[in-house]
Design a protein around this nucleic acid. Structure first.
Lengths: 208, 208
DNA sequence: TAGATTGTTAATCGATTAACAATC
DNA sequence: TAGATTGTTAATCGATTAACAATC
């Protein structure tokens, strides 16, 4: 599969197409058009076709796409045909929500380890997963072949957590703490700021 | 203030600059350069200056910006100098996390109402806020001058919740359910999909 | 004045949209 | 064959980067 300069927005949309296809297939839709997909995820149909065109030809002209096989193709492109092992650090209420978020499991994103430094939390179980002390991080992450780390600690503890993740050789970090983190460039890092969306809405509501 | 075609990415970054400035000011930094801001949020300094230039001249050449006044200016631009009233629907673990998320309060984003349709949850309190039945939504939202609705229900209940929000005349909806919603175009809507970030990372890890 | 840093313009880069040929 | 829908190219649009003049 030749990959050349795919826009990130394309990848984001592929992820959405896949979820929509999964849903449609489950309710019995075996054949689907780019128009239907577009409407389902809120974009225009040429966008759908262009996005797919980066990776190959998956449809039949005049007919459309096979729901199941298109979805499987997208899942393979996104590398979601195999499971990813994830470790989560910081068991506040957000951490708790993420630890039991069904949307992850459905997409083969499996949280294998949960860490917190509060002795009261260590030893308890969330979703059948024992909460471990942050001191065990490096060993456990290595042992369980974790490739993605999620940070849901308070901001002040986020950089330290990131450092531990780097030492433990995770490949990617998803950071929910509202702070910019310093990590080596070979680590894939993404930040989710829960309030930024509300702030953009605040702006838009006022000037539009 | 003349506003002409400001990129959304600019607004997102303004939000990040503001949080960084707040932090810097709190630790005593009264004067700051675009270079420092840029480094703090992970962008290049011309980006910072360009973003600010959409709204005016806030700095002094050769010197930099006054931390406090720049932050106040940005907060005014984003319309975060006054409080926004928010209603949240769906008290699963994600809803619970959002209801007590400190990052919102710090930014004057105030959750005033929480709704759920589970009788066991109705009447309980989260953060001092009584959980109300979804049946009361329209009246309460109207009464409390709520302008933003947050949806943290399961996907199957999200469209119905959005409909209620529209009827209750909120101006904006932040949707955490992994489904595209249909709302009138005068409503500002944004979707946060918690797994999409992990999926983009999955792609990036595999091809980079 | 010299050094520093902003504000702004022009050039580049990239993504989206529109149009349509290909073909089932 | 006619209608439908994909895949692809060209045109447009928008955002980022680079460069530098303005000025404290």
């Amino acid at each position: 599969m030749k990959i050349l300069k795919v826009p990130e927005s394309t990848i984001v949309r592929l992820s959405m197409y896949s979820r929509y296809l999964t849903k449609k297939y489950r309710i019995g839709i075996k054949q689907i058009s780019s128009d239907d997909i577009a409407e389902g995820v809120g974009v225009k149909s040429p966008v759908v076709r262009k996005d797919l065109a980066y990776f190959g030809e998956f449809g039949i002209r005049g007919v459309g796409y096979n729901t199941l096989s298109l979805n499987n193709n997208i899942l393979k492109i996104l590398n979601l045909d195999l499971e990813w092992n994830i470790a989560l650090v910081g068991l506040g209420s957000l951490g708790r929500a993420l630890a039991s978020y069904e949307g992850f499991i459905k997409r083969k994103l499996i949280i294998k380890n949960i860490f917190d430094n509060d002795p009261k939390k260590v030893g308890t179980k969330i979703n059948g997963i024992e909460v471990l002390s942050t001191e065990c991080m490096e060993n456990e992450i290595w042992k369980n072949r974790i490739s993605i780390g999620i940070i849901s600690t308070p901001a002040f503890a986020a950089q330290e957590t990131a450092n531990s993740f780097v030492k433990a050789k995770v490949k990617a970090i998803l950071n929910f703490a509202p702070i910019a983190l310093n990590v080596p460039s070979y680590i894939e890092i993404r930040n989710v700021d829960l309030s930024v969306n509300l702030e953009v809405m605040s702006f838009n509501m006022s000037y539009k």
